[in-house]
Amino acid sequence: MTMPISKRIIFYVLLFITGFIVFAPTLMALVMSFMSNKDIMTGSFPTMLSFDNYVKAFGQFPLLKYLFNSFIISALIMLGQLILSSLAAYAFVFLEFKGRDLLFYLFIATMMVPFEASIIPNFHTIRDLGWIDKYEGLSIPFFALAFGTFLLRQNFKQIPKELREASQIAGMGDFKFYLSVVLPVSRTSLLTLGVYGFLTSWNMYLWPLLATTNDSVRTVQIGLKQLQTQEQLNDWGVIMAGAIIVVIPTLILLFISQNKLQKGLTEGALK
């Protein structure tokens, strides 16, 4: 199964070129975040590198506060999605009751309703609940997740039915079985879904833009937009420093869990 050397060279050349192109914007932003404004404006190669831009970004904007908010909101959404999706998936796999299939189709149907098409009433709901500028308003609407339910359902289906039956004979109830067997057995896919939920929540844009009006719960994405609108004309180094701060947590998370994420998402995507 070894590849001839000529073929291997072709692949490596392709890999390096495409890899460079895909990574270039990120790399460029990273380099720029350490460059002086003068070098950027004149388009020269960096003559000196410093943390000045980061110092400025943190000094001029409550970036730490934004990071903290994003972290809280993403963690809340992640937990909410894990709990709700795993409960629902359990019902679809291990419980038999009238109307189950109908409800399953209802869950599928939710995938066809784009959140963007229902932001107007949702905005009003949040406003009427007094959840504008609150963590609840930014997290709770995203707790129920059809995709997560399918992904976990797929995984729970691989748990042998006999495990449930053995626990039935031992006299164990459904909720206890869910807690003490199903969740520990499928921790890998829970982790996958958790990472996915955290990533997508961290990167949310439209909803935090609408549901925050001040810095108290504003997320780092909206912070970055503000940084950009206010600094646009003069200081690209600071903007890039802000952008790098925004992407570092998710990139690290992605690098750590890339393999699991890939397997998990493929499983969930294809029944």
Binding site: A29, N203, L224
Partner: peptide
């Protein structure tokens, strides 16, 4: 890892990158 990296980059950050480009 390199190819999948853009998944970890938010809309806001990516837009800022390209805004400069």
């Amino acid at each position: 890892t390199v190819y999948s990296s853009t998944m970890g980059i938010s809309v806001a950050a990516a837009s800022v990158f390209w805004l400069y480009l």
